[in-house]
Measured scan of single mutants.
Amino acid sequence: TYYTVKSGDTLNKIAAQYGVSVANLRSWNGISGDLIFVGQKLIVKKG
């Protein structure tokens, strides 16, 4: 599943929405910090 980042989104918010961990979101998307951008597509695997 792909999720497109919207204004106001955070990794924590997206992780909670999908029932996954922030660590997994980072791993699946090659993100090291907490910086995400509006319009960015993130890979999300269902929890």
Rank of each mutant, 00 (worst) to 15 (best):
V22A: 10
V22S: 07
S21R: 05
T1H: 14
G47R: 09
L42N: 00
K41V: 15
A15P: 00
Y18K: 05
Q40H: 05
G39I: 01
N29A: 02
L35V: 14
G39H: 05
K45A: 14
G30L: 10
S7H: 14
S7F: 12
Y3H: 12
W28T: 04
Y2K: 06
A23I: 11
I43G: 03
S7E: 15
K13C: 08
A15W: 01
A16Q: 12
K46S: 15
D9Y: 01
Y3M: 05
A16V: 11
V5H: 00
V44R: 01
S32Q: 14
A23N: 10
G8S: 06
G19H: 12
K45G: 14
T1G: 14
K45Q: 14
S32Y: 13
V5K: 00
V22Y: 03
D9F: 01
I31T: 05
K13N: 12
V38D: 08
G30I: 07
G30M: 11
Y2W: 13
L11C: 04
T10G: 03
V5W: 05
F37Y: 11
L25F: 02
T1S: 12
S21M: 06
Y3E: 02
V44I: 14
I43V: 11
S7A: 14
K45I: 13
D34M: 08
K45C: 06
I36K: 02
K41A: 09
V5F: 03
A16K: 13
G33I: 06
W28Q: 04
W28N: 04
K6A: 11
K45D: 15
G33A: 09
Q40I: 05
K6C: 05
S21K: 06
K6S: 11
I14K: 00
I36G: 02
T4F: 09
G30V: 08
V5T: 05
V22G: 04
Q40V: 05
N24S: 13
I31H: 03
I43C: 07
V20R: 02
T1C: 07
Y18P: 00
V22L: 10
K45N: 15
T10H: 05
L35C: 09
R26V: 11
K41W: 08
G33R: 06
